[in-house]
Design a protein around this nucleic acid. Structure first.
Length: 159
DNA sequence: GCCAACGTTGGC
DNA sequence: GCCAACGTTGGC
């Protein structure tokens, strides 16, 4: 099992939106970055765990835990001309873009803010010290986290 | 709203 | 293949 962090802008799609889905599940469509695409297509599998992160908002934070409900499959929005995510270069015969399904396990009791993550990362031997999210210039919308990082973030949400 | 960092595009 | 211009991300 692997661990990931997925970013979403809450004004576009928030953890509450996911909580309001009838089956607590949504497809993670619209990723249009090749590095993230490769993860979605090749690495992310059913059962993997996800930190659900709110970005580009007043208080960026990990706000929920989710599980991958379906591994990588073609993002059909790419060839829907009416979709915001339409991409004329993506061919249904050989899809360019992929997505996964994620299911919400729980909203965190307490969001773990980016500021707290940064602070924790400065502590000696913190598992967060090499967290991708905290690296300068990092803006991958789907990124790997280690089990230790995942567990630490969960623990921070409980204290 | 600003701006640094990064990714993509396209002329050459 | 280089690189300038442009677009996007996302913290602050």
């Amino acid at each position: 099992m692997k661990y990931w962090l997925m970013k979403t802008e809450p004004t576009t799609y928030s953890v509450d939106d996911l909580a309001n889905e009838s089956d607590l599940t949504t497809c993670w469509e619209g990723v249009r970055n090749y590095q993230a695409r490769n993860l979605l297509r090749d690495e992310i599998e059913e059962g993997d765990r996800v930190l659900f992160y709110h970005s580009a908002c007043k208080t960026p934070a990990v706000v929920g835990l989710a599980t991958v409900a379906r591994g990588g499959y073609p993002d059909h929005h790419a060839w829907d001309k009416k979709s915001h995510y339409f991409d004329p270069k993506s061919d249904p015969e050989s899809p360019t873009w992929f997505m996964v399904d994620v299911k919400l396990d729980q909203k965190l009791e307490r969001p773990v803010t980016l500021a707290e993550l940064r602070e924790e990362a400065t502590r000696a031997r913190s598992p967060l010290s090499d967290m991708v999210l905290l690296q300068k210039g990092s803006r991958l919308s789907v990124q790997p986290v280690t089990k230790k990082q995942f567990d630490r973030v969960v623990k921070m949400s409980q204290s």
